[in-house]
Write a protein that binds this DNA or RNA. Structure first.
Length: 546
RNA sequence: GCGCCCGUAGCUCAGCGGAUUAGAGUAUUGGCCUCCGAAGCCAAGGGUCGUGGGUUCGAAUCCCGCCGGGCGCGCCA
């Protein structure tokens, strides 16, 4: 069945287009804040008023007159009203408001998901922590964000690959090996002989102990390096599993070197004429692509800077067929955005300018008892993802970390996340779900039969508002996917849960009248379904009991 | 100093391809369980949307300056 919203929008915009030929009509129906202004409103008359040089209110009247018959024929809504400076307010018919309930019950887990008109191969790269220490809270934010973005894009019908890039080559791994070696020799941070550049966390001592326990030779730095990387990868994998994040591909930086891809990129960049030698180093003219200074590719000591393998890595993404790539990183990496894109452009192999997309998040501060928590026993100088999960549980960590837009700084309040009441948004939403479940448990009937309920028994404002809120879900998902902004799903769930709690307090579901009871149960089943589908996009469980 | 991001109620934050009277949570205050989970609900108070200009019939939303904060400015990653 056609969506009444789209029908009305098309009719109004069509009429406006006739009145103002040549003007671009991009007006979408909006949901007025004030319910007195109807279910939707169009501001198209205001939009074209400037071009026509006429009063918007007059234009609105003309549009309403011109579309009156067509609107009536479509049956999508009540007669249009004009308000304020020239808004056209639209009121849906009761029946169409309730349609969503039936759709939800029919679609089940698929509600909110669509088949893409043009499905794409999409890659989301996130976390990508170096195997030099436990995952920190920033990685947690990337994990929650990246996994939710991937889920949103899947819900839009795309084929999504979740990828983790391991920097297992280079200076930081050397630093790790030396740190383990120092620990193996019995040294601690601050001792004479402790490396100047070292990882000082307790975990390094654990690695050294395990290495020695397995008969490792403290003089064999190479063996220690391999052991330490394997050890930390295993630990990170365990943390990610506890966090509920699964990757499809782990891509190793070392493989880029091993397969000659780094050399290959350098050759191509030299051939492109965008590079030059200076001070014994090889530079790339990234300033031609918006960078504020040119960048070194090959240092005078012959080694490559990190950005060369980065470019090589992104070439493989393109070659693997990912036409849409999203990298989730902390804002402290924002300078790499221009650099990587510049490198890809300089190669001139047909990669579009804005490739890849980036979602950059700002820092996470953890507080407890009003004080910032800065250290963890294991990692030393930072709080780990494992710490957060141990303290407040996976659901709370994931919901919290995804409940703010990426570019806002986030204060993770441990005390709040531990509350098991309405102050804690995760519990509030999960509780709404558990509450619906308990109604069904009490009722004891078969929910499968609810699809046939006569929804005309739902008459109260609250019920209609709740049904309409449910109907918004697919739009929320679509726009969150479009904007790469999962936080809007979290906000939506918070408000849906709120409306359900209100409704639950105001009306009894299991009333004696069978018609009313069945209709209300159908509404509740739709609420339960939508909450569960939304939580699942965020990687948060929807418990039946709490 | 330069670049990017941010500045909305006491606090944490939505809203920002302009549009009808600025939202939510929390905190504060006052109500609601003989009845489906009170892990909940209802209500009240609380904001010159950092600041000064500009564009517009109309700006929290767009543009410019300034102030404040974050991040980055390496032949580190």
């Amino acid at each position: 069945m056609p969506d009444p919203k789209e029908t009305v929008e098309a009719i109004l915009n069509g009429a406006a287009g006739k009145m103002a030929p040549g003007a671009s009509i991009t007006s979408r129906l909006e949901r007025p804040r004030n319910p007195a202004h109807g279910d939707f409103a169009s501001s198209v008359a205001l939009q074209i008023a400037g071009a026509l040089g006429r009063k918007p209110r007059d234009i609105a009247e003309e549009i309403v007159r011109a579309t009156k018959d067509e609107i009536a024929r479509s049956g999508a809504c009540e007669p249009l009203e004009i308000a304020g400076p020239g808004f056209i307010n639209i009121r849906l018919k009761h029946g169409s408001k309730l349609d969503a309930i039936r759709v939800i019950l029919e679609q089940g887990a698929a509600y909110g998901r669509v088949r893409a008109a043009t499905p794409q191969k999409v890659q989301v790269e996130f976390v990508s922590a170096n195997p030099t220490g436990p995952l920190h809270v920033g990685h947690g934010r990337q994990g929650a964000l990246g996994d939710a973005i991937a889920a949103l894009l899947e819900a839009q019908g795309h084929a999504v690959t979740r990828e983790f890039y391991y920097n297992d080559a280079g200076a930081q791994i050397e630093k790790l090996a030396l740190s383990v070696q120092a620990r193996a020799k019995g040294l601690s941070p601050g001792d004479a002989g402790w490396p100047l550049e070292a990882y000082n966390g307790e975990y390094v001592a654990d690695i050294a102990r395990d290495f020695l326990a397995q008969g490792g030779n403290a003089a064999d730095l190479e063996a220690m390096r391999k052991f330490a990387v394997a050890y930390l990868r295993k630990e990170q994998d365990a943390d990610l599993q506890a966090f509920g994040v699964k990757f499809d591909v782990y891509y190793l930086e070392s493989s880029l070197y091993a397969e000659g891809k780094v050399d290959d990129v350098v050759k191509k960049l030299v051939a492109s004429g965008k590079s030059y030698e200076k001070d014994g180093a090889l530079w790339l003219r990234t300033t031609e692509y918006g960078d504020d200074k040119d960048r070194v590719m090959r240092k005078s000591d012959g080694g490559y800077t990190y950005f060369v393998p980065d470019v090589a890595y992104h070439v493989t993404k393109w070659q693997r067929g990912f036409r849409k790539v999203i990298n989730v990183q902390g804002t402290d990496h924002h300078s790499t955005v221009v650099r990587v894109r510049a490198g890809l452009q300089a190669l001139a192999i047909g990669i579009p300018q804005g490739y890849p997309d980036y979602v950059l998040h700002s820092l996470v501060k953890v507080t407890r008892g009003g004080e910032e928590v800065k250290i963890s026993k294991r990692a030393g100088s930072y709080v780990t993802v494992r710490d957060l999960i141990d303290w407040v549980g996976r659901d709370a960590v994931r919901f919290f970390l995804v409940s703010r837009k990426a570019d806002s700084e986030f204060v993770f309040d441990i005390d709040l996340a531990l509350q098991r009441n309405d102050e804690n948004p995760v519990y509030y939403v999960q509780y709404a779900h558990a509450r619906v479940c308990s109604v069904f448990a009490q009722w004891g009937g078969d929910p499968a039969g609810l699809a046939g309920s006569d929804l005309a028994f739902l008459k109260s404002e609250r019920e209609l508002a709740l049904a309409q809120r449910l109907a918004e879900f697919p739009e929320v998902v679509a726009s969150a996917a479009q904007e790469l902004a999962p936080h809007s799903v979290a906000f939506y769930l918070r408000s849906l849960a709120g409306e359900f709690h209100s409704y639950y307090n105001a009306e009894r579901i299991l009333v004696d009248d069978e018609g009313v009871r069945m209709a209300r149960l159908a509404l509740c089943a739709a609420v339960r379904r939508t909450l569960a589908n939304g939580l699942s996009l965020l990687g948060v469980s929807a418990p039946e009991k709490m």
